[in-house]
Design a protein around this nucleic acid. Structure first.
Lengths: 356, 356
DNA sequence: CTGAAAGCGCTTACAG
DNA sequence: CTGAAAGCGCTTACAG
């Protein structure tokens, strides 16, 4: 089966002869028999307008279906109430959920929300410049290398906030940013597996967002920390990608090794692939091997075995990032109280004591 | 474990004393010793500018880091190269993938892409008006009731295209729209199950996008059609929602009924829930019951059993919708050749001949 | 090839 | 309380 789609062309819009263009404040002024400044006052709810005048203007506004031209407003005012989000992905759960949090906060604040995908092909500086040219602020999702690189290149004069994977190293006074404590979460998840009696825990990593050789990101760090605290040597991490396919490939290697009894994954997609590889290798979860994911994607509770994972408040992160941006835009505005971006280990079927 | 997040406030941006505002064409003109009209010509690559002049202006542009003010450009030109997408969801696979197609196409065309979530709480007309006020075009994702309602209320004079669940009934000359042939796809999927030897096929429905009592949307229609063609009576459909939880609830009812051997689901999330319910009821897939989903979400190939499903080209749908919008904006532009929005039945482990 | 004028639709002081 | 002027940063005819 391979059905071809359809396209309909009913009701194409072309300005019909009788269809006049949108009314301006001058049109309204004429209809209400006042000056256009008075109209401006009315639409901006300026206090000093006589009630009777205000009423007449409002009537004209309604009659003509007047709506203030947002472009002209922005030009005159010199500001745009808009954010554009720069992200290298919109489909992965963490990104999509963060985006949703940003949308929610921007909507509540009356801001317009733009989205621009960062790709390896496009010139980063050009993409950033084009986004900045819209006149609003920027929020960059810096979970990965491309996002982190973009963040570094945003010109200083452009209002910008970020949601990142981990706090910037050192005391670098970077951009205002929010993050969750991935390291503590990974550490706790690893400790949980160790407490279950597993001799060690293997790690399937997500790609790092920074170039530091020292670590592969906070999740890997937390995992290492927990192993060290338990006096266990860390096995070499695997994983080369974000998706289930990458998890599957890493999982195949792990499944062959009979010493492997516990695996922490950098995200739920990787975990799904690992689960699949273990299944193909005939290794039962959790009887033979325990698996823990990261992010708590919507489907993770419904796969079999259901996935033990770390729940992240991505939407809260998105909302908080918007708050940081806004504090910059209205410089008199207090930076918002840090939204608590919680992290929770959700225990489900994929982790347990080894019974084989 | 419940770790609280962190917020960093390094490098807050406030215009430092020495930080002058962005250069305008007048600044460039002064630096290049020409009139600002000439600068305008240069940045618009107007042919009649002396090479020497052009070079001088370009130098000034580079020196001052001039970038044309997009807002002023839009006001003067009277058009905005922007689309805003109206959608009631951004997380479900179909929506997110459609959105990505729209982003890709808009990026390629040099359009800005806005996103606004439709919610039951907000006033639809107000949301639409606010989106229209940005000056660009609208694309509404009409897969569900809220989206379909929004589409109906977009004022005639605002440029708008849509991606919908099914062709509008009758010859209603509605908005330019694209859709995939869900009905044919559902019919083929159902026919496939019947051909496998299943006496009938049950259906777990997604919520309908229209109020027609006649049908519950094209997927349900296709399912009915296939059953009728086989001379089989259609069992009552179940399902009340979009997510895995809804699928799980419907699945519990189905799992109790020993007559049920084949289930078609309105999407992959529902299918996941159904799979889970069958598992809890001790019914094996596909030995006892076959399950087919819809949409081919990224994880569907990696769950166990892997999910037989209908692959939809959501990104293609998004791209095509953008094309329709653009044809409206540039009225001299030909509507694009309908992008083939294909639909493919992907056979995996969850469907087969009954062996119990 | 290049400059002076008017206008896009609004807002912000400034008068009265 | 209300109107006339100037300006936001561009573009589009119109002159020269």
């Amino acid at each position: 089966m391979s059905v071809t789609g359809h396209t309909s062309f009913g009701g194409r819009v072309h300005r019909a002869p009788g269809q006049r263009k949108a009314a301006s404040i001058r049109d309204v002024a004429r209809a209400a028999d006042v000056s256009y400044q008075t109209v401006s006052r009315v639409i901006n709810s300026h206090p000093s307008v006589r009630d009777e005048t205000r009423r007449r203007v409002q009537e004209a506004i309604d009659a003509l279906g007047f709506r203030r031209n947002a472009t002209a407003f922005a030009l005159a005012r010199g500001v745009t109430r808009s954010v554009t989000v720069l992200t290298s992905d919109t489909l992965l759960h963490g990104y999509a959920a963060t985006l949703q949090g940003l949308e929610e906060a921007s909507r509540a604040a009356g801001f317009t929300l733009g989205v621009r995908l960062l790709t390896p092909e496009d010139d980063l500086d050009q993409t950033i410049a084009a986004a900045a040219d819209t006149g609003g602020g920027l929020v960059v999702i810096g979970y990965d290398r491309l996002g982190a690189a973009a963040l570094d290149r945003v010109p200083a004069q452009v209002p910008c906030a970020a949601v990142v994977e981990a706090p910037p190293p050192g005391r670098t006074p970077g951009r205002p940013a929010v993050w969750a404590d991935d390291r503590a979460a990974a550490r706790a998840a690893t400790a949980h597996l160790l407490a279950l009696g597993h001799p060690t825990v293997h790690y399937v990593a997500i790609p790092a967002s920074t170039g530091t050789r020292r670590s592969a990101g906070p999740r890997a760090e937390g995992w290492r920390l927990a192993l060290r605290a338990a006096g266990v040597a860390a096995p070499a991490p695997s994983g080369r990608g974000w998706d289930a396919q990458a998890g599957y490939e890493a999982g195949r290697g792990l499944a062959r090794n009979r010493e492997v009894t516990a695996i922490l994954c950098g995200n739920d997609d990787l975990a799904l692939g690992v689960l699949r590889a273990l299944h193909h290798a005939g290794r039962r979860v959790p009887q033979d091997v325990s698996v823990i994911g990261f992010d708590d994607a919507p489907h993770s509770a419904f796969v079999t075995p259901s996935l033990t994972t770390v729940r992240m408040d991505f939407q809260g992160l998105g909302r908080a990032a918007f708050g940081l941006l806004r504090a910059q835009l209205d410089s008199d505005r207090q930076p918002p109280a840090p939204d608590p971006v919680a992290t929770t280990l959700v225990l489900r079927e994929s982790s347990g004591t080894r019974t084989s």
